[in-house]
Computed example of a mutant assay.
Amino acid sequence: MSPGIIVLVSALALGVTLSVLKSRFDGRFRGTRAVRRPTGEKDAVEESVTAAERVLAADFGGELGERATLLQFSSAFCAPCRATRRTLLEVESMVEGVRHVELDAESHLELVRRLGIMRTPTVLVLDATGAIVTRASGQPRKADVIAALGAAIDAGSSADR
């Protein structure tokens, strides 16, 4: 076999492998560090969340949702951002007390850096206090968003007890 064919086959195999990995992990919610302590004590909860793990309404000039917030970081020419917006707005209309907030990553660079946002779209699921429960980079599926919201709402309700 000639070296050219070996390079071509290797490049093709690498491309297929990377494509499969991207489709497997793109848009999937991944866990963050434990936001809530199982004791349910209010003081322990407040101390267990650092500034980098909490987003306040003042950080983006809006309001948090009553039960949870879907915080989406987008950019102007991002096609998956538009599809993600539609999905999150649909979920917002389905679940009471949930708010969708979309931010332009370029206009909120300090927040992007603080939260470690590396690409758009990135969706953060926040509980009622603004603590980050989970995040997804890429376009999430509606079922995954609803499941992540369930975890955020459960975390918020266990803190109220």
Rank of each mutant, 00 (worst) to 15 (best):
C81G: 06
G150I: 03
E47K: 13
E110Q: 10
G150Q: 02
P140H: 06
I146N: 00
A136E: 05
E47I: 07
C78L: 02
T84G: 05
E106S: 07
F29K: 11
V45H: 12
L71D: 09
S23T: 15
T69C: 13
R67D: 11
R36Y: 08
V91F: 00
A52M: 09
F29Y: 14
C81K: 02
A52E: 14
L88K: 02
V55K: 13
L103M: 10
D59G: 14
A52V: 07
T134L: 14
S107T: 06
P121K: 04
T120H: 03
V123P: 04
S23Q: 15
I117A: 05
R30F: 15
T129Y: 12
R24G: 08
F73Q: 02
L71Y: 11
D43E: 12
S107G: 12
E106A: 10
A148G: 05
D127Q: 10
F73I: 01
E90S: 07
E90T: 06
F25E: 04
S137E: 13
G61W: 07
V123K: 06
E92I: 00
A147D: 10
R119I: 01
A51I: 10
A151I: 09
A79Y: 07
P38G: 14
G116W: 07
S74M: 03
K142N: 00
L109S: 10
G61H: 06
V95C: 04
V145P: 01
P140D: 09
L88Q: 03
R141K: 07
A79M: 08
V145A: 04
V125S: 10
Q139S: 06
R30D: 11
A44C: 02
D104Y: 01
V35K: 09
G62R: 13
I146H: 00
R119M: 10
A44H: 05
S107F: 01
F29W: 11
S75E: 08
Q139G: 03
E92A: 05
A131F: 11
V112I: 07
H100F: 11
V101P: 09
A105R: 01
L149Y: 01
P80F: 03
T69S: 14
L70T: 04
T32G: 15
E90H: 00
A76P: 01
L109R: 10
L70S: 07
G40D: 08
L124G: 11
F60G: 13
F29T: 09
G31W: 12
V49G: 13
V123R: 05
R30Y: 14
E106N: 08
S137I: 08
S137M: 12
A83K: 13
M118C: 03
R114C: 06
H108W: 04
R114T: 04
L149K: 01
P140F: 06
